[in-house]
């Protein structure tokens, strides 16, 4: 089961090459701007400071959720447990607060739990050589189950808003929640690690040919464990932010995020690096999806139509990325 998007080299006409480059570098950003303009023509409320703040708030949470996932998918693996890890962290945080724990301790415990799930995923994939999909389907089921069991199947309310609430609610210039700043800082850090550290190179090399990377002496097993652990921890952090944002623990909050998260990562994979999920792409795609959802809600589209649009978007992104990766492979071969 290879998640790598680069298929076998296919002969492609010469003129398509530079076209592929333009698509992959600017497509999504241009689409984001065009879509924002188009929707704000119909519904000027889209650009109200209050609406921008709402979009950016869910953007921040979503970016954190897919930060680790981006690299897991970039390395040619898959993690479908991230949204349930977030749900479990969300419920753990709420349950511990209900028990009288402080916010600091509850946050630490929830993130530690996410880290543990990530380590289990990574360990089973790297050491036991089990298929990532099966491992993470199973851990997702267990996390969802544990999340529901924590609240006996119902929502846990959080009385004390806590310190994160301030970060989410306070806005700069009335439109930018403060939380955006640390989130973007984290993204920059991740971008640096991906672009300038050896680890980032290894991630993409693994997607191409894991055996070769092992053969040159890279500790691939340890990197896989690290990537899954990061995915678990960042999803758990998102779950904690959701707890603060919603002032409650929601056991079934995970479900919707699976397709959102994958759409964001795959759509982002069309940008900057051809056919390869990357941090900058994920951030842009998250903003794209956030604006799209906000616009769809303002235009009065029902939920199911949004779901259809999103699925179509995911498939389109995937098809374009697959096609671009093929052209790219051809170009490298041609030179």
């Amino acid at each position: 089961m290879s998640m790598s998007l680069s298929g076998p080299a296919q002969p492609a006409p010469q003129r398509k090459r530079s076209f592929a480059r333009i698509i992959t570098n600017l497509w999504l950003l241009a689409a984001l701007v065009a879509m924002t303009l188009a929707i704000s023509q119909q519904r000027p409320q889209l650009l109200d400071p209050g609406n921008i703040a709402t979009v950016l708030r869910s953007f921040s949470i979503m970016v954190i959720m897919v930060l680790g996932l981006t690299w897991v998918i970039a390395s040619g693996k898959i993690d479908v447990s991230f949204m349930q890890v977030a749900a479990l962290a969300n419920m753990t945080c709420a349950a511990l607060l209900q028990q009288g724990w402080g916010w600091g301790a509850a946050i630490a415990a929830a993130i530690a739990l996410g880290l543990v799930v990530g380590l289990v995923n990574g360990g089973l994939v790297a050491r036991m050589k089990l298929p990532p999909l099966i491992v993470t389907i199973a851990t997702a089921g267990m996390c969802a189950s544990a999340a529901a069991a924590l609240g006996k199947g119902t929502v846990i309310r959080i009385a004390d808003p806590g310190p994160l609430r301030g970060l989410l609610e306070t806005t700069l210039f009335g439109a930018v929640p403060v939380i955006v700043l640390p989130v973007l800082g984290l993204c920059l850090l991740a971008w640096y690690a991906q672009e300038r550290l050896a680890m980032g190179r290894y991630i993409y090399a693994m997607a191409q040919n894991e055996a070769a990377v092992v053969a040159v002496g890279v500790p691939v097993g340890r990197i896989v464990v690290l990537l899954f652990a990061l995915s678990g921890a960042s999803a758990a952090l998102a779950g904690v932010l959701l707890a603060a944002n919603l002032s409650s623990g929601q056991p079934t909050i995970g479900g919707a995020y699976l397709i959102n998260g994958l759409t964001v990562v795959l759509l982002g994979g069309m940008m900057v690096h051809v056919g390869k999920p990357n941090i900058l792409g994920s951030v842009t795609a998250t903003l794209f999806l956030g604006v799209l959802f906000s616009g769809a809600a303002l235009l009065g589209l029902p939920d199911y139509q949004r779901q259809i649009i999103q699925g179509a978007l995911l498939l389109t992104g995937l098809a374009v990325a697959t096609g671009a990766a093929r052209m790219h492979a051809h170009r490298r071969k041609g030179n």
Binding site: M1, S2, M3, S4, L5, G7, P8, I78, V80, L133, L258, I259, L262, T263, L266, P302, Y304, Q305, R306, Q307, I308, Q310, G311, A312, L314, L315, L318, A319, T322, G323, R326
Partner: peptide, 25 residues
């Protein structure tokens, strides 16, 4: 078209889940 199986089927599944609402909302 060599698209990755997992994500493709998740996308198709999502579209279908949305289409299920077409008949009666």
């Amino acid at each position: 078209f060599g698209m990755p199986d997992i994500v493709t089927t998740i996308g198709v599944g999502s579209i279908c889940a949305g289409l299920a609402f077409l008949y009666t909302g």
